[in-house]
């Protein structure tokens, strides 16, 4: 059973997402807090996510997208979930790793 990787930093500010994508084994990636900007179209890091979709199932937390006014620009292939979906993801994976 693969693990769930959680990232909470904007990829334009810190390297947490880049390190996660480089190191983590194929599995799932959940973007929360400031990391939801990584899930949006048109940023300079968009290609990192579109490329990573072949290795990870990628999710973004909808309440965090909505709070930041970017829920309407989520990259195709990235699924949006609420907190209950977050709980389901944790339960469905063998462990989770927060790339703080």
């Amino acid at each position: 059973m693969p693990i769930l990787n959680i990232v909470n930093k904007s990829p334009l500010e810190r390297n947490a997402l880049a390190s996660c994508l480089r190191i983590a084994a194929p599995g799932a990636l959940l973007l929360i807090e400031d990391a939801v900007y990584a899930a949006t179209r048109g940023t300079s890091t968009e290609a990192e996510i579109t490329t990573a979709l072949s290795k990870f199932r990628i999710y973004a937390l909808l309440p965090d997208l909505q709070a930041r006014a970017v829920a309407d620009r989520v990259i195709d292939g990235v699924a949006t979930i609420d907190y209950e979906g977050f709980v389901d993801l944790v339960a469905e994976h063998s462990a989770c790793q927060s790339w703080l």
Binding site: I3, R22, I23, A25, G27, S94, C96, Q97, L100
Partner: peptide, 18 residues
């Protein structure tokens, strides 16, 4: 290497980040 580390991570029960 990164892929070896990733495999090792995937085998863990509890992962704590610092």
């Amino acid at each position: 290497d990164a892929d070896e580390l990733g495999k090792l991570m995937a085998e863990q029960d509890v992962i704590l980040s610092f």
